[in-house]
Design a protein around this nucleic acid. Sequence first.
DNA 1: CGATTTTGAGAGCACTGCTCTTGTTTCGGC
DNA 2: GCCGAAACAAGAGCAGTGCTCTCAAAATCG
Lengths: 233, 233
Amino acid sequence: MTSVQGARARARIEVTAAIKDEARRQLAAEGAAKLSLRAVARELGMVSSALYRYFPSRDDLLTALIVDAYDSVGADAEAALAASRGADAPARWVAVCRAVRAWALAHPHEYALIYGSPVPGYSAPRDTVGPASRVGLTFITIAQDAHRRGSVALPPLADELRPEAARLADEFAPDLPPALVVALVAAWSQLFGMVSFEVFGQFNRMVENRDAFFTAAVRRLAHDTGLIVRPAP
Amino acid sequence: MTSVQGARARARIEVTAAIKDEARRQLAAEGAAKLSLRAVARELGMVSSALYRYFPSRDDLLTALIVDAYDSVGADAEAALAASRGADAPARWVAVCRAVRAWALAHPHEYALIYGSPVPGYSAPRDTVGPASRVGLTFITIAQDAHRRGSVALPPLADELRPEAARLADEFAPDLPPALVVALVAAWSQLFGMVSFEVFGQFNRMVENRDAFFTAAVRRLAHDTGLIVRPAP
DNA sequence: CGATTTTGAGAGCACTGCTCTTGTTTCGGC
DNA sequence: GCCGAAACAAGAGCAGTGCTCTCAAAATCG
């Protein structure tokens, strides 16, 4: 297929990767606001206009970095999920949450890029929705496994939320009870609230033992979602 | 005091206010990234260098806007708290949470400024910590009232979190049980997780009936914190 | 080989934050 | 009322930005 596609195509993907690497380096060093196309080109020994052959605009470069960042957290979350195979549902939930937090603390600027304020004129392009959902799918997988094994205690569901819950479940996990799905979405967003507060410094001079705080809170989140410990028969 | 302080000082605070107003307008229209000192000056009919007499740098202007934004949400939250006087604790919690969310949806760019990724070289200046804590203090007030009336069911507290909880309570609300304080901090950050996801578009093409979803989730947050309904004797 | 597409290089445009210098206006003490 | 000091507006200018355009070199394909 595209394997032996001439030196040209090969060079192109190499240069594209080099640009993204250097951009990621600047992102980690200075943040998205200070990411400069000219500086990236300069560091790579090319002229700024040449860079536009690879990314039609600065925002497109950022979009590429966004996709990569989503894939990076997503991969870490999935790895944590795989590594926790066999554990009970709450433990797996906590493991994935801790993986997400660890990734965020290790890549604060990339985290800010995807879970902070939308940087450009915003409106995320279509390419991002796939990678963006990988973490969420991890949680759904945990819930599905737990539900299959009967280790779910259905959380309460407010009456006025019932239609929304049914729609949500139908769209994302038809095999799961609606109450579980909406609880999952809530816990998902709440998890990122805690991670964002920590990464963005809102816990400064307040929470000290963040590891213990986070773990306890996230365990409670699992409980709220309905995930319970139930040893295999 | 500083009341009749000459036309000079008077003009200064007027110009300062005009600059902030115009900056806020541009902020709402285009976002923090595109806020331009020159454009603000242009719109105000002055030259860009003159603006530096009022704000020594662009970041200082942004800091001023940040403080104002914190005060704005804080005021709304406090108003909601005052308006809910007499209601039971969970109802008051929900009322304040809804006020915060409403403010965020009405001022998305200002919300992004204070609860999104830190924009400048970050590290919030000292002036911001006072206004920034107003919303949190609102929640502490609710908890204190509830605790005084006995309408709190203490949430569980993990052993490894006990020292942290004691320290936290001692620093922020010595009259409250430590378990309640850490639960409060967790719920506080989780609340902003949901608001951020809604404002930043993470719920797009997913949650439709966001009002019902948010209210139900936030009610559960109150329950997690230990706030319970208990009619006055 | 020749024609075509892809790439790099350079100049240039309009814009940004910010500094410095030059006059002008306002203020407080005599 | 006068006069030095402080505050101020204005303009020019610097270094940097994203992005467009043109033009030559290089790789690709018929």
